[in-house]
Nucleic acid binder design. Structure first.
Lengths: 217, 217
DNA sequence: AAAAAAATTTAGACTTGTCTAAATTTGTTA
DNA sequence: TAACAAATTTAGACAAGTCTAAATTTTTTT
């Protein structure tokens, strides 16, 4: 049974370890959590005492099996709640994160499993991220960034890298969402901007936009 | 913006003040919260500093208007979540309390209001307790204890006084729930036990049971 | 490889909410 | 109404989680 704080740390460590290789550094967690590095060191020690991370002074941490499981349980709840908020409570995909950050800490296996059933066992959340099932297994498809897609190849938007409200609302205005069919019509060599087909409309997006959109073909 | 703990105290003070008159005593809150009286005194001072209660040393507390509002906002969330758990997530009425105790602290007006809409503006929770609406107003009907009902008068079960699992599961086994039509067929003078009609079956209940069932006629 | 910079840890302090034990106030009873 | 009992408060301590400032280790640069 974890405290709110340890759960936040485990989740942060999991996310950082996913997007970089090797041990997770003190500073990266400090940034993610919004705490000072000294506080992070303190917490690393506590997590280590509980065998949730492997910690060596000055060398960062890595999650143990138990730590991974705990992190995935929280991520599972987070993404199930996000799905619920969007599908039944009229939240937009840029509004759900803050509330899900709270809901992910609710302790009740029955609640989580019943929520999953109620939502009909969703495999991905509103941002396209995979939802761990009861056994904490999740289906990841072979997604690539839109920048890596060959010109004229058809694909479908399956997720985003940047989850900021600014970006998500921008996509909303461009009518791009999870499931939208996309196709690169032309890549401009000058500034790497792309002319794309998005659903029924054609539009221009910058390189920065394209490298924050995941697609599968 | 309150902490988990202050919210628990405000709710406890509200509940105790509803079931007794005058100021709320330190000990009664200590019992309700499961803390020592000295801790309660500390918290009374903090709540008083925030103008959520009126506190006079050795004289207990009473909620200010702001304190009542805060308590009702928590109770509103608690009862909405209980309703959700029972109506959509297959929880029984004796299982919801513990989870709702956690969910009631989630901070998001949009969430609360959308949940209320999703549930179609329920006026009472699974135990028959009234749910404050957005304006924190709640409809209380003129309920009486089953012990006070005249023999042969028809009525409907609208709530329970004791919310323990033991009692609620007992009622489940007897097939008595919110909305069940009840009628006292005979009151036994010897031990105050009652023969009642509950829905389609007749059964005997003790005085103790009858004085924990609310009905309206 | 020495010096400088960056990252990390330690030490000591603070806040919140809790506790125990002792002191004080209120109430109850003889 | 004096003495006792019960309720309440105070004083001092503790745990969790955080911070700042200083010390230490690692990494990078010259």
């Amino acid at each position: 049974m974890q405290t709110l704080s340890t759960e936040d740390y485990l989740k942060a460590i999991y996310h950082v370890s996913q997007s970089s290789s090797g041990a997770v550094a003190t500073t990266s967690i400090a940034k993610q959590i919004g705490a000072k590095p000294s506080s992070v060191t303190d917490m690393f020690k506590k997590l280590s005492d509980q065998n949730l991370v492997k910690y060596q002074k000055y060398q960062g941490v890595s999650l143990t099996n138990e730590g991974v499981k705990t992190a995935l349980r929280i991520i599972r709840k987070h993404r199930l709640w996000e799905s619920f908020l969007v599908s039944h409570l009229n939240f937009n995909w840029d509004e759900v994160h803050q509330v899900a950050e709270q809901l992910e800490h609710i302790q009740s296996e029955k609640l989580t499993n019943e929520l999953e059933r109620f939502l009909d066992y969703p495999t991905h959340d509103p941002h396209g991220d995979p939802i761990p099932n009861r056994a904490l297994f999740m289906k990841t498809y072979n997604k690539i960034l839109l920048t890596e897609l060959p010109v004229n190849k058809e694909c479908v938007c399956v997720g985003v890298k940047d989850n900021s409200s600014d970006f998500l609302r921008y996509l909303d205005r461009r009518q791009i969402g999870i499931g939208t069919p996309l196709q690169v019509l032309h890549r401009e060599d000058f500034d790497d901007s792309l002319h794309i087909q998005a659903g029924k409309s054609t539009l221009m997006i910058t390189k920065k936009t394209a490298e924050n959109i995941y697609v599968k073909s």
